[in-house]
């Protein structure tokens, strides 16, 4: 919905002020949404030396080397990591939304989901907070809903499962996929674990 009067309460505005806001509105519509900045570009390039060579730490030509370092680091800390995570008293960092995805029922209706996704952490984990409303409660104890990343309309990467309760359901997931590889999101209704991909209820 990008109708100016639907979005902005213009009551009490002088005509020239309304015209100014409308021009800003028109430019926003014309510009479209800002692009999703990939993790490799999340920080300014590093100065490699006193000269003028700048390097992004995560750009493709360096990713293999980085992956080796990360793998080695994970191998070293793997044993102790669980203890640390389980016993750390440090406060979690505040969730900061970097991307928003909205999903609706394929045939209209009241079903709605909004995904708020934070920027990926240093190793590519994307934390997301999902709010779902309007989906019917599951009738069977084994049934659940599942969030997927899709490619060419097919559910490819599972991102998490949930059951709904009440009017709104809020769940948190963390996924480690490279989002640019995929082209959409869906939620399916799953009758039981191990079943094939169920009917799409949100897209």
């Amino acid at each position: 919905m990008t109708n100016f009067h639907d979005l902005v309460d213009t009551s009490g505005l002088a005509p020239d002020e309304e015209a100014r806001l409308r021009r800003a509105h028109d430019l926003l519509v014309r510009a479209g949404p800002p692009p999703d900045l990939p993790p490799a570009l999340s920080a300014a390039p590093m100065q490699a030396s006193e000269g003028t060579i700048l390097q992004f730490p995560l750009l493709p030509r360096r990713r293999l080397a980085l992956a080796a370092v990360v793998a080695a680091t994970l191998a070293l800390v793997g044993f102790g990591g669980g203890y640390f995570l389980g016993h750390s008293k440090s406060k979690p960092t505040a969730f900061q939304t970097a991307h928003v995805v909205s999903m609706h029922g394929p045939g209209g209706g009241e079903a709605l989901a909004v995904l708020r996704i934070a920027s990926a952490d240093s190793v590519g984990n994307w934390e997301m907070r999902v709010q779902v409303s309007g989906l019917p409660k599951q009738k069977q104890r084994s049934a659940y809903y599942e969030l997927w990343l899709t490619k060419n309309g097919k559910a490819i990467a599972p991102c998490g499962t949930f059951r709904v309760h009440g009017k709104k359901t809020n769940v948190h997931f963390t996924v480690s996929y490279e989002f640019p590889r995929y082209d959409g999101w869906i939620v399916t209704a799953q009758p039981r674990p191990g079943s094939k991909v169920g009917p799409v209820v949100l897209t």
């Binding site: 949404p33 999703d36 991307h99 928003v100 995805v101 909205s102 999903m103 920027s119 869906i186 897209t203």
Partner: peptide, 10 residues
């Protein structure tokens, strides 16, 4: 159709 948008943070 899912819509994806990004939010700057500065």
């Amino acid at each position: 159709m899912a819509y994806v948008i990004s939010l700057p943070t500065i």
